[in-house]
Design a protein around this nucleic acid. Structure first.
Lengths: 149, 149
DNA sequence: TATTGTTATACTCTATAACTATA
DNA sequence: TATAGTTATAGAGTATAACAATA
């Protein structure tokens, strides 16, 4: 993207532009820093979710992440193909697959989290620690908004 | 997306998640509030840019907005089809099209800006005025980062 | 009948490659 | 040769519809 203020203050101050820009930049940093680990930012989200909520069915994971269950199929396919998660039929309800992290998945998660931390630090290199946490807390409150859709 | 803290703090506090979520929610609000006006958020960005920098060639506009020139062709096609902008061959360099807002385009821009202001207010309904401006200023500084590519 | 996972398909967004007209 | 606009095409990413297995 171009510098900054070639756009005029009305555009460069709009939240649509600012959020898209921050997200694009962070996505590029994640692509660069996660590449050696062999996963992408979306897969990291799934690993983080499983680490917090495991064991979890594909449907539950999809709902929590806000994606369609068909999207989750592809995500789990990819992660399972890399040996990071395992599908196991739920004995209590055999329509369901329970998804679990493997040991390799847990190790990969730790490495990927560190890489993602670094991506965040580079994105926010202009902010000090207090400002970084303030930004995070403001965004958290935005995400928690009641009528947010 | 699901509530909030079903995800665990490690995921729900990650910037990747927070930014994507804020952007998704804002996109949904824009879709709703801009629909009666007949444009989308991307087209609003082009109108805002032209209003600040007009007259501008398609290539210049694309570079400033950070999209490919082929993407700009489609954007201008749509806006021209609605009578909001006009292409005019540049007499000084007839390879170029100069793009200008029409009167209807300027009126539409004003209405769309108000709708987008409302979308932002709804997204940020949990923040007071000072917090809103603080968030905007933090995001501006993130966007202005030097090595952010 | 309803739900879970799956597959096939389609849609949106955006980029790359190739063409044309101009320079 | 190089550039601006255009077109055709392809690749992500994600959704909808239909199907099989199970409840």
């Amino acid at each position: 993207m171009s510098g900054d203020e070639d756009l005029g203050p009305r555009l460069s101050g709009r939240l649509h532009y600012l959020l898209k820009r921050a997200q694009n930049d962070l996505a590029a940093l994640h692509e660069e820093l996660l590449a050696p680990i062999g996963i992408n930012a979306g897969e990291l989200s799934v690993l983080l979710l499983l680490d917090a909520r495991e064991p979890e069915s594909q449907q539950q994971a999809a709902q929590r992440l806000g994606v369609d269950r068909t999207t989750m199929v592809a995500l789990i396919d990819a992660l399972e193909g890399k040996g990071l998660v395992e599908r196991r039929p739920d004995p209590a309800d055999r329509r369901r697959n329970v998804i679990e992290l493997t040991d390799i998945g847990r190790k990969t998660l730790r490495r990927a989290t560190r890489a993602s931390d670094q991506a965040e630090r580079r994105l926010l290199s202009q902010l000090d620690g207090a400002e970084t946490e303030h930004l995070r807390s403001l965004l958290r409150r935005v995400a928690a908004a009641p009528g947010d859709r």
